[in-house]
Design a protein around this nucleic acid. Structure first.
Lengths: 250, 250
DNA sequence: CGATATCTTGAGGAATCTCAATACTAGTGG
DNA sequence: CCACTAGTATTGAGATTCCTCAAGATATCG
C-alpha cells in the first residue's frame, strides 16, 4: 500500500469565492442554492457565514483521517472527494464520493468514521461543529435539513450494501455509472457524459472489486456498445436502457 | 424465492405493556430508558404517549414493505426484526437486525427503503410520522437524539460496507458474531452467549454469503474452538481474542 | 412420531482475484 | 518538440474463494 497523504499545502482554485466588502460572503457562494444552505433565509445564512472558513485542497490531500476528533463540518464548494475506511492490512473500502454541494462530516459523534481525501483540487467551507450544534435548537430548518441529509445518506448506504452483498461485477459497474450520471445530472451537467475524477483502483475499492476486474468490466461494456471512453477520463453512456438492463435493478 | 409474508394476525406476548389507569403508559415501558425515550423528561414523554400505539407481530409478519408510504415510526419494545432489500430476481440483502429498544423507520422521507419483518414474536410502539415531525421544532432534545441515531446508523452502515466489500467469508462471520455479542451485551445479557433469532439463510443474506458458506464457516469456527453451539440457536463465544483475530479489524 | 423446514457436508464449477506483462497517459526535462 | 519517466490502465493465464447443485443429518412442530 502506498497510501500516505499527509494534510498539507494548499492550492489556488480558478474561481475563488467572491468576498464583497460589507456583504455576506455566503450569498455569492457557488453552492448557495444547494448544500445545507438552500433551506436557510438570508438572515440565517448571515449567522452561518460568520462561522464559515473556506479552504483549498490539492489532489491527494486529506481533509481529515478516520479516528480524528470530529470538530468540523464541511460543505464541498468545488472539486471532488473520496471517503474511505481501511483494514489494518491495507484493504480499503471507499464508502462514497463527494461532489460540489455535498455535505461532509455528517456523523458528528466523537470521531470521524472515515478518511476524506481530495480527488482533484477542491474547495471546502469549514464550519465548527459545536457552534453548529448550538445553533440547531434555534434553527429547526437547519436541524431538519441535516436530519433529511442523514436519512438520504442512510438510504444510499443501504442501496450500496445491496450492491456489495448481492450484485455481480458487471451489475456493480453498470449501477455505479448510472448512479454517477444521475448525480452529476442533478448538478446541470449533461446526463450521458460522465467525468470520472477517480482512478480505476478507486472504483474497485468503492465496488468491492479489484482494479483488473473493473478494467475488464469497462472493456466489456464498451465492446457491447453501452458506453464509450472519451479523453480525460470521461465516459459517455451510449445505451442507457441497455446499461440499466445490466445494472439489474431498474 | 419463497418470500411472501403478508402483514397479518397478531400474537399475544408474555409481557404486555402495562396500562395503569390515570398514568402515563410510556412510563412503564420496558424500553423507557433506552430507545429515543431515554432523552425525554416525564412531561415530554407524556406528550408522546398520547400518540403511541402498541402492536404485536408474529414471526414472519412484516411491519411494512419497501416502497410503502412512510407514515409511521416505530420503537421495538420486544422481539427482533430483520430489514431487507430485494432485487427483482429475488436476491436479498439484509441491511440490519433490530432488537428491543431499537428505533425503526429512520429514513422518513417519502417511502420506506426496506422491508421490516419479525424474526420472533415482537411488540412495536407505533408513532405517526407527521405528528412527530411537527413536534421536533419544540422538542430539540428529541430532534438531536434522532440526528444522533441517524449518525450512528450511518457509521454502522459504512462499517458494513467495509465488511461486504473487503472481508473474506470467515472474517465476515467472526465480525458478525462479535458485533452481535456487543449489541446484546449493551442490553444486559452476558457477553459470551449469543442468541441467534435469525436463520443461517438470514445471516448469509446479511453478510453477502450463501447459507452453505455460513454453515461451513460456523463449523470451522467451532472446530477451531473459538465458539460452541448451544441448544435453541445460541452460540457461545469461547475464545474472544481468537475470534477477534479472525475478524481481522480489531 | 411423522412431516417439514433448516442445517450440514460433499463435489464440482464459475466468478473473481492474483501475479505478470504490456500499453497507454501525463508530466518533465533536454 | 521529443524522449524519458512514473503512474495508470489493459490484457492474459493460472489460482482461489465462494457458489451451485445435491444428498444426508438434525431440529421443530403438530
Amino acid at each position: 500500500m502506498k497510501d500516505a497523504h499527509p494534510t498539507g499545502p494548499r492550492v489556488t482554485l480558478p474561481h475563488p469565492a467572491a468576498k464583497l466588502p460589507g456583504s455576506n460572503p455566503c450569498a455569492a457562494c457557488a453552492v448557495r442554492d444547494r448544500a445545507i444552505c438552500a433551506v436557510l433565509d438570508d438572515s440565517e445564512l448571515e449567522q452561518l457565514s460568520g462561522l464559515a472558513r473556506p479552504s483549498d485542497l490539492d489532489v491527494g490531500r486529506t481533509v481529515f483521517f478516520e479516528g480524528d476528533d470530529a470538530d468540523s463540518l464541511y460543505v464541498l464548494i468545488a472539486g471532488a472527494l473520496k471517503l474511505y475506511k481501511l483494514l489494518p492490512d491495507g484493504r480499503r473500502q471507499i464508502t462514497g464520493f463527494l461532489f460540489a454541494g455535498d455535505f461532509l462530516g455528517l456523523a458528528f459523534n466523537e470521531e470521524y468514521q472515515f478518511t476524506a481525501e481530495a480527488l482533484m483540487p477542491s474547495r471546502l467551507c469549514r464550519l465548527p461543529r459545536t457552534k453548529i450544534e448550538g445553533l440547531l435548537p434555534e434553527m429547526p430548518k437547519l436541524a431538519s435539513r441535516l436530519l433529511n441529509l442523514a436519512f438520504t445518506e442512510l438510504a444510499s448506504a443501504q442501496t450500496q450494501m445491496l450492491l456489495l452483498g448481492r450484485k455481480t461485477a458487471q451489475e456493480r459497474l453498470a449501477s455505479f455509472l448510472l448512479h454517477l450520471a444521475d448525480r452529476l445530472a442533478g448538478q446541470g451537467d449533461p446526463v450521458s457524459l460522465i467525468h470520472l475524477p477517480m482512478s480505476r483502483a478507486d472504483i474497485g475499492d468503492y465496488l468491492g472489486l479489484t482494479v483488473e476486474t473493473v478494467s475488464r468490466g469497462v472493456t466489456k461494456l464498451k465492446s457491447a456498445g453501452l458506453i464509450a471512453l472519451r479523453d480525460g477520463n470521461y465516459i459517455q453512456i451510449q445505451d442507457r436502457p441497455g446499461l440499466e438492463g445490466v445494472a439489474g435493478d431498474l
